[in-house]
Amino acid sequence: MNPVSREKIMKRLLLIAVALSLIILPVILIWVGYNGSGIISIEFLTSRPRLFEYGGIYPQIMGSVYLVSLCTLFGAPLGIASAIYLAEYAPDNRITQSVRFFTETLAGMPSIVIGLFGLEFLVFYLQLKTSLLAGAISLSFMMLPWTIRASEEAIKTVPQEYRAASLALGATKWQTIVNVVIPAAMPGILTGVLLGVGKAVGETAVVWLTAGSGLEAFVPRSLSSPTGSLPMYIYLLATQAHTVEGVQRAYGASLVLLIMFLGVSVSALMARNYYLRRLGN
């Protein structure tokens, strides 16, 4: 075969692979949307589950919202502070290198291992019980390295000239960071945090081991209440429901979860654009 016609065939094969990777997202979105939209109603979104397979998913929605908000409250400030240290202060020495190495190790840790650790350390050792607090803290362990990575990258892309200009005006290092570097890095930091939030919303294994079984039919009343969440609820119904109603609810909950996830992703993009516009770029 001559090289030119082989070239054509190869290009076709490439396009088949591209089509396969491209088709996954729309197929899953349409499948969930098609099967899930039928059951969505005000009642479904605002009432509690009954008899496992009936009723609404209000406690699961709120459980997910609480878990993720608390997780962000713990994880985001810590992650941003770590990133500031690594990007602005860290001298290039053994200590910094090992801090970086451990951050990467944490990023690569399977979520079930983080769940196991949360179960042993938070639930049993610190006696937080299977609860909202234990779940949120465990989730924040998972989110932390991603926030650090994204924020560090964002801080590092702030032009050195901004820092020089601020220091030359007599600002201290910290004043420069707070007033110039962080605002300039905000779009990247925000996007990073929101992507972390998106990850936390869909995380199942960690909340399974630390937050609750997913059957909880009530909104958590305190930090020590066991807390159901959408992913756990979907898992339980998908694998253990016996009725059409149960499966329908799994579709409905999946649709709500996907909308929450896409909502977070879209607001990540919008926040980035808003800041970029305000900065005049």
Binding site: S21, L22, I24, L25, I28, W31, V32, L195, G198, K199, V201, G202, E203, T204, P231, I234, Y235, A238, A250, S254, L257, L258, F261, L262, S265
Partner: peptide
């Protein structure tokens, strides 16, 4: 492709 990274794994498992 980057959105797929974030799709909750439980939804893909359900699929």
């Amino acid at each position: 492709v980057e959105v797929i990274v974030g799709i909750p794994s439980v939804v893909i498992g359900f699929f």
